[in-house]
Amino acid sequence: MTVRIIHVFTSLDFGGVETHALTIARNAHFSKNEIYFCALGSGGAVSEELEKIGFPVYCLNCSSKIPDIKSIYKLLGLLVRIRAKVIHCHGSEANFHGLISAWLCRVPVRIGEEIGVPRHSRLARLVFKMVYLFSHRVIGISDAVKDWLVESSEVPARKAVRIYNPVDLSFTQSLSSDGQEDGFFKIGYVGRLEEVKNPLALIRAVDLLKERNVPVKLFVVGDGSQMMSCMSLCSELSLSDEVELVGYSNNPGSYVSQCDIYVQPSLSEGFGIALVEAMGCGVPVLATKVGGAPEIIDHGKTGWLIDKSDPVSLFDALYQIWSQRENLPKIGECAKESVRGRFEPGNYIVALDNLYNSLAKNGSVNG
């Protein structure tokens, strides 16, 4: 039985959540269902790519700020028009507007997905507790996210499920790690340049490594609201030779694969796709012990976990790793082996279809 599914995102421009839409599209052959995509806000690089692949994409161009009546109204009209039988919302804004709209027009299967551990106020927790009443299930992309949803009382335990994010590692087949050949201690970072991702602390840690005469090179791949702050800090600390601010790249693996270590210094994190991608390249990882990182990294075997990600804590960990850098190739191989097949996109698509089908049996997706 073919079911029409619509995946709702806040935007479809660029970023980890948006790229998730591309992963779904590129692996849709694992599903027999009909897939649509929708952005509450604007489209962009991802929506254009989705259309090139051949998927229907709708960009509502609404603010998506909670609450936005226009978003609910326009999404309600779209759901009625395309007659979706399953709605799958990704992220807080999409969950709020999508689940309300889907309940109003009686979409038979309504799925929310939380992509991180939100910093909700008491009022926000109450609001989302009410919103999730309109859902049949809420997916947490890691055990840490799912447990938070339950412990915060936003989602009843019977509704919360964990399905890991899919990570496409096919690009790593053409890459190899060669970080230590030129004598530099090469560090990689990929992600949005936002406060929660903590890139400034990593740059300051590089400055501390430089002070200890470590021949360090940091590649910062990504863009965001803190790009200018990163540029200013590099100038202030005279790190033009040690830090390369790459900006957005559609091939971050080409930078990560040449590194000795990949660092995720986040203050909060839901899963950590970039961590898995780095490990898939055979690169050891260092990450703050937040979100899904402890579920991905086997401390001391495939990488390292730290409790804090202030500059000094990052420096201490990186200096110790550099001091024992002869062990990095072996740890990188262990990292690569540990993620092989574990987060396959095909398995993710099958898990989603199984969830949709199990819920559909309790409803009437043909009605």
Score class of each variant (00 low, 15 high):
Asp310Leu: 10
Asn354Tyr: 11
Arg4Pro: 01
Leu60Pro: 12
Val214His: 00
Pro108Trp: 13
Ala287Thr: 01
Ser177Tyr: 03
Arg81Cys: 00
Met130His: 09
Arg340Val: 00
Glu51Phe: 02
Met1His: 13
Gly183Ser: 10
Leu40Trp: 10
Gly332Tyr: 03
Lys70Thr: 15
Cys259Glu: 02
His90Phe: 11
Ser364His: 15
Ser177Trp: 04
Cys89Val: 05
Ile331Gln: 00
Glu211Trp: 05
Thr2Asn: 14
Asp298Ile: 15
Leu104Glu: 05
Arg4Trp: 01
Ile66Pro: 02
Val8Met: 02
Ser170Asn: 08
Ser323Asn: 14
Ile87Gly: 07
Ala84Lys: 06
Met228Ala: 13
Val365Ile: 15
Leu123Cys: 03
Arg158Gly: 04
Phe55Thr: 05
Cys259Pro: 00
Gly54Asn: 09
Ala157Asn: 09
Val220Asp: 03
Leu359Ser: 05
Ala278Ile: 03
Ala335Val: 07
Ile306His: 01
Ala351Trp: 11
Lys129Arg: 15
Glu326Leu: 02
Cys234Glu: 08
Ile69Pro: 04
Glu113His: 12
Glu211Tyr: 05
Ser92Gln: 11
Gly188Ile: 03
Ile72Gly: 10
Ser358Asp: 14
Gly253Asn: 02
Gly44Trp: 13
Tyr164Thr: 06
Asn357Leu: 12
Asn251Ile: 08
Val145Gln: 05
Ala274Leu: 00
Arg125Phe: 03
Ile349Tyr: 13
Cys62Trp: 00
Ser254Leu: 01
Ala21His: 10
Ser42Val: 15
Val350Asp: 08
Leu75Ser: 09
Thr19Gln: 12
Pro108Asn: 08
Arg158Ala: 13
Val86Trp: 06
Asn354Pro: 00
Ala124Ser: 12
Ile24Tyr: 08
Leu133Asp: 04
Ala278Asn: 01
Thr19His: 06
Gly116Met: 12
Ser177Asp: 03
Leu328Arg: 01
Gly341Cys: 07
Gly224Tyr: 13
Gly140His: 04
Glu48Gln: 13
Gly179Trp: 04
Glu51Lys: 15
Leu78Arg: 10
Leu79Lys: 07
Leu126Met: 12
Asn61Thr: 10
His88Ile: 00
Ser176Tyr: 14
Gln180Lys: 09
Leu79Phe: 10
Glu242Asn: 11
Asp13Cys: 09
Glu195Gln: 13
Gly282Pro: 02
Ile82Asn: 09
Arg106Ile: 04
Phe134Gly: 01
Glu181Val: 10
Leu218Ser: 06
Ile66Ala: 02
Ile296Lys: 02
Asn357Val: 09
Val109Met: 07
Ala205His: 09
Ile331Arg: 02
His88Lys: 05
Ser364Asp: 14
Ile273Asp: 01
Leu318Ile: 14
Lys289Glu: 12
Asp68Thr: 05
Leu286Glu: 06
Val155Ala: 11
Ile87Ala: 06
Asn327Met: 05
Leu237Pro: 12
Tyr36Ala: 06
Glu113Ala: 15
Glu244Trp: 05
Glu49Ala: 13
Ser71Phe: 05
Asn165Asp: 10
Ile349Gln: 08
Trp103Glu: 09
Asp178Thr: 03
Ile203His: 08
Pro294Met: 11
Leu239His: 05
